[in-house]
Design a protein around this nucleic acid. Sequence first.
RNA 1: GCGCGCUUAGCUCAGUGGUAGAGCGACUGUUUUACACACAGUAGGCCGGGGGUUCGAUCCCCUCAGCGCGCACCA
Length: 724
Amino acid sequence: MEPNEIPSQYQPQDSEDRVYQAWETSGFFNPDNLATRKKPFTIIMPPPNANGSLHIGHAVFVTLQDIMARYKRMRGFKTLWLPGADHAGFETQVVFDKKLEKEGRSRFKIPRDELYQEMLAFTLENKKIMEGQLRKLGASCDWSREKFTLDPDIVAKTQQAFVEFYNKGLVYRGERIINWCVKHQTALADLETSYVEKKDPLYYFQYGPFVIATARPETKFGDKYVVMHPGDIRYAKYKDGDTLDLEWINGPITATIIKDDAIDMSFGTGVMTITPWHDAVDFDIAERHKLPKVQVIDRIGRLLPIAGEFAGMKIADARPLIAEKLKAKGLLAKTDEAYDHKIAVCYKCNHPIEPQILPQWFLKMKPLAQKAIEAAEKGKVAFIPPRFKKIYFHWLRNIRDWNLSQQITWGIRIPAWFKRESEIKNQGSRENMEDVYVGMTPPEGKGWEQDPDVFTTWFSSGQWPFLTLGYPNSKDYKTFYPTDVMETGWDILFFWVARMVMLGIARTGKIPFKTVYLHGLVRDKDRQKMSKSKGNVIDPLGVAEQYGADALRMALIIGNLPGNDIIISDDKIRGYRNFANKIWNATRFLLMQIGTPPATKKVKYGAKEKAMLVKLKRLTADVTKDMENYRMHHAADKLYHFFWHYYADKVIEEMKPHLDAPDGTTEKETAKALLLEFHRTLITLLHPFMPFITEEIWKHLPKENAKGRTQKENLLIIEKWPTT
RNA sequence: GCGCGCUUAGCUCAGUGGUAGAGCGACUGUUUUACACACAGUAGGCCGGGGGUUCGAUCCCCUCAGCGCGCACCA
C-alpha cells in the first residue's frame, strides 16, 4: 500500500483478524517454534468458566497476561502461555439449573448420564465461543496446548490425587457439619456462603430455671443440653453433668447441664441450648462433650417426625406456630421483635444455609497449609501487591479441613465406592466405614456403588499448573514447571491461589509459581460491580469491535494497579481509540516523508537529535524497568505520554522544517533517520500493550535486517525488545 | 471483634523527602495538508483533619474522621 492510500483513520476491524491469523499461523505462540531459545517463561491461564461468554473482567486478565507473555517473548524467552477452560462445577450447575428452570425442568428429575451429556454439550459450546473471544482480544496463547478441566487425563490425575491422599491418610470420610443449600441440594464451602443482614424476632423461652434466647425455635425440639460458661458465677450452683426435669415444646424432658467456655457470658442470659445437627458452634460443643446429635430438619427444609405435630412443615411456616405454642404453654418469657442479625446464605441463590451433618470427603489441611505458609515466609512465592501475603497467611493459619464433596452432577466423579446403597441414600445415616473403597478402578465383588458426589471444582483447578503441563513425566512438565507467574483476581486468593500452592507442593514437591499477581475487579463509573442483573456490563467484544481491541486493552491496563479495583467507562476506551489513531497518523506522516524505498544511509546526528535520542533511551530503560517490576500500568502510561506529547508534539514538529530540505541533503536524511529510529523503537515498545496496530504498522516500516528473513520472521511479535 | 485498603483539579486516577501531574470534562481560539479521534491555549487543588520526625512532608511516623473491603461460630 502506498502511504497516501493509507486511510486517515485507523480502522481496527480491517486488520485485527488478519493480524491475529498471521500470528497464529506463524506458530510463534508455541514455544517449540522458538527453537533456539533456552530460558522458559510460563504463565498458565486461569481457565475461564465455560458457562457463558467472556466479560470485561476476563478481558483484564487477558490483557495483563498477554502483555507479560509478549514482553517476555520479545526479550528472548521460550514463552508459554497455556490457555484453558474450566467446567466450573457448582457455578455451571447453578447456571444450568436456571436454564432448566426456565424450560420447566429440574435436574433432580433427569437421569444423571443424560443430564451430564447435556451439560457437557452446553459447556463445550461456550468453550468454543470463549476461544474466539480470546483471539479477538489478541491473546498470544499456545492453542496447541489448550486444556479443559474435564479432559480425560485431567480427570484421571485429579482422581489419582484423591486416591493417593487417601492412602496417605490425608483424605478421610467424615460426618461433619456442612453448609447445606436447600435450593441447590449440595454442600457448600464456607467460602461459598455469604451473610445478609436480617431483622427477625428473637424469642426468650423459659427452659426450666433458665431463660434461653433463640431466633430459631424450630430447631429446638431435640435440645436436651443446656450450656453455660464454667466461669459464670450466676450459674455456679449448677455442675457439669447435673440433670433437671423441665417442660418443653412437646412435653416433659430431662435436660443436662454442660459447661463450655465457647459461651459468651455477656450475650443474652449467658445460657443456651444446643442443636448440634443444625449449628456449627453447637456441633463443636457436642463433639467436645461427646453428646448425641439429633436431626430435626431434612434436606429440603422440612421438619422431621421429632417435631411432633409440626412434622412435614417448612421451617418458615412452622417458626411462628412453634413460638405460639410455647407462648400458650407459658414458656415464652419475652420477644424482641426487631432483632438484627446476619444469616448465612448461599452465595449464588441467597437462600438461607441450613447446616446439616452429612458424610463427606475431607482433606486434612493443616500439614498442607504449613508448607504453603513456609513457602511465602521464605519468599519463594511473591505477592503483588505484597499486602495480600498477610491475608494469605491469615487464611492458611486458620484453615479447616476441606470438604471435597459436592452433591451435584457436573464435575469429576469421586473414585470411592460404598457397599450398602441403602445407607448412603438414607439421609442422616451413618455409614459403615468398613464398606468404603477408594481406588482408580471399581472394587471386585458385588453390591458396590460409586459415590454419587463429585469433587468441588477447586480440587481439580487447584492442581491446574502441573496437570496442564502433563505431570509427572512429560517433557513440558520438566521444561515449564514450576511456572513463573500466576495472574488472577484477588477475589480468588483463597479459593484458588492458596490451594494451588498447597496442592502444588503436596503433589509435585514444588511451589507451582514464583510470583502471584493479583489484579483488581472492574467496576462501572458508579463503582458498581458489573453484573448482568444490574445491566451495567460492558461487553468486551462489543467494545473491541467498536473501538478496537488495542484501545480496550489500554483502557484496561492504564490506571489498573495490582489489587485495586478499576473503573472503566466508554469515555476512557474512546480516549485510547484516539491514541491508536494518533499512532496511525504519525505512521502515515512518517511513511509519506521517508518514501519508498527509504533512506538507508548512515547519518551523523547533531546535538539536538542526540539529546532527543537520549530521551528515547531513557524511556526505553524506564519502560523496561517497569515491565521487570510488573508495573505494566505505569509502562503503558509512560508510552502513551511519550509517544503523544513528546514524539508527536515535539520531535515530529521540530523535524518538519528539516524535512522540507531537498532530498538527499544531510539535513533531510538526518531528520528521516531520526524519525524512523523513534518510530521503530516506540512501535516495538508498544507492541505488548497494543499488539494489533503495532504489528500492522510494523509491516509497513522499513526493517533493519530484513534481508534473508522470511515473512514470518519479520513479524513484530518476535522482534527483539529495544536495548537499554 | 480481628485485619486491610482508600481519601490529590468537577470525574477517574498517577506521583515524588525539596516551587503539585495526566486523561476525560469545561472554557477560548484554530479547518496550520499526519491526525477535529486533532492542534494552540485558559480556568480549576490549604494533596481528608490534627500532631510528630526533618533545614524542608502530599510523600515517613502517630492519631482522629469519612468511605470501602476481607476474615470471623455471638445463640
